[in-house]
C-alpha cells in the first residue's frame, strides 16, 4: 500500500475528499452570509435553518410531489428565496436602524422557530434522500475510489461560488451591489431602488443556502439539526475569511474544510477544534480576517 508521511494513501485522499466536501458547504454558506452581511449589516443566524429548509423542500418535493433531484436543485432555492423575501420584508427590514444585536437576536430566534417546527413535524432522526440515479456509483481514480455524487458536490459548489463571484465582481448589477454596501443612501440618490435590492440580496443569500441544502440532502440525512451542525463552523469561516469578503469566504471555506480533513488523519482528536484554533490565530494576527479590510 502506498504511504504518505507514514499514513496509508487511501486514508489521506479519503479525508482530503471529505474535507473538500465539508469545505464546499462551508464556502456556499459563508458566501451567502458574507453577501447578506455586506449589504444588510445583519449577521444572519437563520442561515443554517435556511440550509436545512432547502434540504426539506427538496425532500418534500420528492416524496409528496414526485419532483426529482435536478428540479429540486432549481426549485428549492426559489422557494426558500421567496421565504427569504417574506422574512426580510416582514421582520428583518425593521431592524436596520437598530444595533447589530437585534438582528442577531431576531435571526437566532427565527432559526430556533424554523428548526423547532421541523423537529415537531418530522422528528430529529432524519430522513434519507436517495442519490439521483445519474450520480450513483464510484469511479476508480487509481489511488482511491471516488463516489461520483461527492465529486459532483465539490464541482457544483465550486461552480456556484465562481458564478456568484463573477456576478458580484464583473457585472453592473454587482457594481451596484458593491456600491450600496459602501454607501447605500448615495446609491439610492442615484436612482436605484435600494430597499428592493436589499430584499433581493437576502433572498439570494437564502437561495444559496437552500442550494447547499439540496446538495447536502443525499450525503447527510435530511434532519432538522443539519443546519445547526454546520452553522457554528461557518461563522468561524466567515470571521477567518473577513466579514463581508466574497473571495475570503470561498477560499477560506474550502481551505478550512481541507485543514479539518487533514487534521482527522494526523491528529484526529483535534479535528473538532482545529478551525477554532485557526480562528484564534488569525484574529490575533489579523483582526479583520484574512481577506477583510480593516475598518
Amino acid at each position: 500500500m502506498m504511504m504518505i508521511f507514514g499514513y496509508p494513501a487511501p486514508l489521506m485522499f479519503g479525508q482530503l475528499l471529505l474535507g473538500l466536501i465539508n469545505g464546499a458547504f462551508y464556502a456556499l454558506l459563508s458566501l451567502g452570509l458574507a453577501v447578506i452581511f455586506g449589504m444588510l449589516n445583519i449577521v444572519n443566524f437563520a442561515h443554517g435553518a435556511l440550509f436545512m429548509l432547502g434540504a426539506f423542500v427538496a425532500w418534500g418535493m420528492l416524496y409528496y410531489l414526485g419532483i426529482n433531484y435536478w428540479w429540486a436543485l432549481l426549485l428549492a432555492p426559489i422557494v426558500v428565496g421567496a421565504f427569504g423575501v417574506v422574512l426580510e420584508k416582514l421582520l428583518i427590514s425593521r431592524l436596520y436602524k437598530l444595533d447589530h444585536v437585534y438582528g442577531l437576536l431576531l435571526t437566532f430566534g427565527l432559526a430556533l422557530i424554523i428548526e423547532g417546527l421541523a423537529r415537531n413535524e418530522f422528528g430529529s432522526s432524519g430522513m434519507p434522500y436517495a442519490i439521483p440515479r445519474q450520480l450513483q456509483g464510484a469511479v476508480n481514480l487509481g489511488f482511491m475510489f471516488l463516489p461520483i455524487y461527492r465529486g459532483w458536490v465539490v464541482v457544483a459548489a465550486a461552480v456556484m461560488c465562481l458564478a456568484t463571484w463573477l456576478v458580484i465582481e464583473k457585472t453592473s448589477l454587482g457594481a451596484t451591489l458593491r456600491a450600496a454596501t459602501e454607501n447605500a443612501p448615495l446609491v439610492q440618490a442615484f436612482g436605484v431602488n435600494v430597499p428592493r435590492m436589499i430584499t433581493l440580496t437576502y433572498a439570494g443569500g437564502a437561495a444559496l443556502a437552500a442550494f447547499a441544502g439540496v446538495l447536502a440532502a443525499p450525503i447527510y440525512s435530511v434532519n432538522p439539526n443539519m443546519g445547526a451542525n454546520f452553522i457554528i463552523v461557518v461563522f468561524a469561516v466567515v470571521v477567518i475569511g473577513g466579514m463581508g469578503s466574497i473571495l475570503g469566504s470561498v477560499v477560506t471555506g474550502f481551505g478550512l474544510g481541507v485543514i479539518e480533513g487533514m487534521t482527522k488523519v494526523f491528529y484526529p482528536q483535534g479535528s473538532a477544534t482545529v478551525i477554532f484554533v485557526v480562528m484564534v490565530i488569525v484574529l490575533l494576527a489579523r483582526p479583520a480576517g484574512l481577506f477583510g479590510k480593516s475598518a
Binding site: 453592473s172 458593491r178 459602501e182 454607501n183 443612501p185 440618490a189 442615484f190 436605484v192
Partner: peptide
C-alpha cells in the same frame, strides 16, 4: 424616496464626492 427624486430628474454631486472605493472609474 431618494431614488424616485433621482428618477424625477435631479442628480447630486455630494460634498464628500462619494466615489466608491470598490468600483473602478468606469463602474463609478
Amino acid at each position: 424616496r431618494p431614488d424616485l427624486i433621482a428618477r424625477a430628474g435631479i442628480a447630486i454631486c455630494p460634498e464628500e464626492r462619494g466615489i466608491f472605493a470598490s468600483l473602478n472609474v468606469t463602474e463609478n
